[in-house]
């Protein structure tokens, strides 16, 4: 199979060029939203697509990152890169705690445990004094990157967000292609066999969970800076469902799928919320779920790859 035109490195290059040109053509805030959700979905897909673990509570990590960054930016006046770092680390720590509990069960129990743990966090954030309750944290300052670059400029913010996304995406690619990632795949394909080969399966799952949670936190922290808002929406189970949908639409277990899926879903949501169909948004999201599961399980990228394989 010589599909040399579509090697990963070339595709990476083309996408990178597109991303560099995009903010001069499209609205930068929209693009930043896509990048944040794409990073969120890629982080989620590391767990679902490559370790076979369906987390139905990933919004917790997105929201935790957002709250921590938002709180620090408002109250301490630290620089944005430190704010984001703090959000990522705390999300990773919560991930370490939740992951340790969740990997004790498998399959659909894993999904139920993560959903329930996420709801626990939701109630915590609802009642905690530092999250602003129903209002959330509003007016989070974007600050100056390294104390120098003013991020309130949307274009400069965009390139910062792009850099963060590329870092996250690179890390996920490296993880997937590392020996660690290969063991994860082995666990996904045949867990008893991986155990019999001497791998401590639960530890592998746990580490994958932590990486995924931290990167989801990174996405949430960045998103909070972009929209200058951290709210309960980001920790609600709806958000956990949305990231599943993005990954499903794009193609789970593919590297670029979540990126494509996030772009598709964010575009649809933006389009719907502007028009008359805004009231139907949940119905339409539900319908996309049902259609994807019934007829389009490979997702956009998965399907594209399949067609390529068959025809070239």
């Amino acid at each position: 199979m010589k599909t040399a035109i579509f090697t990963h490195s070339k595709l990476n290059l083309v996408l990178l060029l597109l991303a560099l040109v995009a903010p001069f053509v499209l609205y930068p805030v929209f693009l930043m939203k896509v990048l944040c959700f794409a990073l969120f979905a890629c982080a989620f897909n590391l767990l679902l697509g490559f370790a076979g673990l369906l987390s139905f509570g990933h919004a917790v990590f997105l929201g935790t990152g957002g709250y921590v960054t938002g709180y620090l930016m408002i109250n301490t006046g630290i620089t944005p890169e430190l704010g984001i770092l703090a959000g990522t680390v705390v999300a990773g720590l919560v991930g370490a705690l939740y992951g340790k509990l969740a990997v004790r069960r498998e399959g659909i129990y894993f999904a139920m445990v993560t959903l329930a743990l996420a709801q626990l966090a939701f109630f915590f954030y609802l009642q905690a004094p530092f999250t602003g309750g129903e209002d959330g944290l509003q007016g989070v300052p974007r600050g100056h990157l390294f104390g120098v670059i003013d991020l309130s400029d949307n274009l400069q913010m965009y390139f910062f967000v792009l850099a963060i996304f590329l870092f996250g995406f690179w890390l996920i690619q490296r993880t997937v292609h590392s020996p660690f990632g290969q063991v994860l795949k082995a666990i996904r394909e045949n867990e008893p066999r991986a155990i019999s080969l001497g791998y401590n399966v639960n530890d592998y799952k746990w580490v994958a969970f932590i990486i995924s949670a931290a990167l989801a936190g990174l996405a949430g922290s960045t998103k909070t800076l972009v929209f200058q808002l951290a709210s309960l929406t980001d920790v609600h189970w709806h958000m956990s469902g949305e990231v599943v949908l993005m990954t499903l639409v794009g193609g789970m277990g593919t590297l670029f799928g979540p990126l494509v899926g996030a772009a598709a879903i964010v575009t649809i949501q933006n389009y719907l919320s502007g028009g008359e169909l805004g009231n139907y948004i949940h119905i339409i999201m539900g319908a996309i779920f049902v259609i994807c599961v019934l007829a389009f399980r490979n997702g956009i990228v998965g399907q594209f790859r399949k067609v390529l394989k068959q025809n070239f």
């Binding site: 369906l54 399959g107 659909i108 999904a111 469902g241 599943v244 499903l248 009231n279 139907y280 948004i281 949940h282 119905i283 339409i284 999201m285 539900g286 319908a287 996309i288 779920f289 049902v290 994807c292 599961v293 019934l294 399980r297």
Partner: peptide
């Protein structure tokens, strides 16, 4: 809906029923 994908990974049926739940809830909210 569920029968056609009974042979697939059970995660798909979970996602399917989640989608149905979203649709029902959305419809009644509307």
């Amino acid at each position: 809906l569920i029968r056609p994908i009974a042979q697939e990974d059970h995660l798909y049926s979970l996602l399917l029923t989640f989608g149905i739940a979203l649709m029902l809830q959305g419809t009644f909210t509307h």
